[in-house]
């Protein structure tokens, strides 16, 4: 019998959005998913205001040096099991900011420092289209 918490997770994942120093593009596309054209709330995907309520963390942007401890703090507050979705090329691999001097690393590297078993889903693109993000979430939930 599957774990009770993962069963809930499959029904209606609640997402929390963390911007870690991206260029705003992915953040706007995430908000776009909520508006009438895409309307992810009809699938039960809801943007929540606190990480403590979230099942999925949407992280966009390369992790800037100052935001690194805060991202780790947010990750600690999310109830486990949870999925971390790296939205956009910068979050997946730092993209164009690879050589910048105050960037700490891609999202997966930063989060694996505190939790080696974290589950990741990567959404490449600059910016990824809202359809891609919805598909990525669906795939992530199948993974659990």
């Amino acid at each position: 019998m599957p774990n009770l918490s993962t069963r809930w997770l499959k029904k209606s994942p609640w997402v929390y959005h963390v911007g870690t120093g991206g260029c705003n593009n992915c953040d706007i596309e995430i908000l776009d998913c909520l508006t009438p054209r895409f309307d992810v709330e009809r699938f039960g995907i809801k943007l929540v205001v606190s990480p403590r309520h979230a099942d999925v963390l949407l992280v966009s942007g390369p992790v800037a040096y100052h935001i690194k401890p805060r991202l780790q703090e947010v990750y600690k507050q999310v109830p486990k099991p949870c999925v971390v979705a790296c939205i956009g090329a910068c979050a997946c691999s730092m993209g164009i900011f690879k050589d910048a001097y105050s960037v700490a690393g891609p999202v997966d590297k930063v989060i694996k420092e505190i939790d080696p078993n974290a589950i990741f889903v990567y959404v490449p693109g600059c910016p990824p289209k809202p359809e891609t993000m919805i598909m990525a979430l669906v795939k992530a939930l199948q993974k659990i």
């Binding site: 120093g21 942007g61 800037a64 040096y65 100052h66 900011f97 910048a100 105050s102």
Partner: peptide, 14 residues
């Protein structure tokens, strides 16, 4: 201020 600073101006020099 000063948290999501990535140093784009310095990066442009490279």
């Amino acid at each position: 201020i000063g948290y999501i600073h990535k140093g784009i101006e310095l990066l442009a020099q490279q």
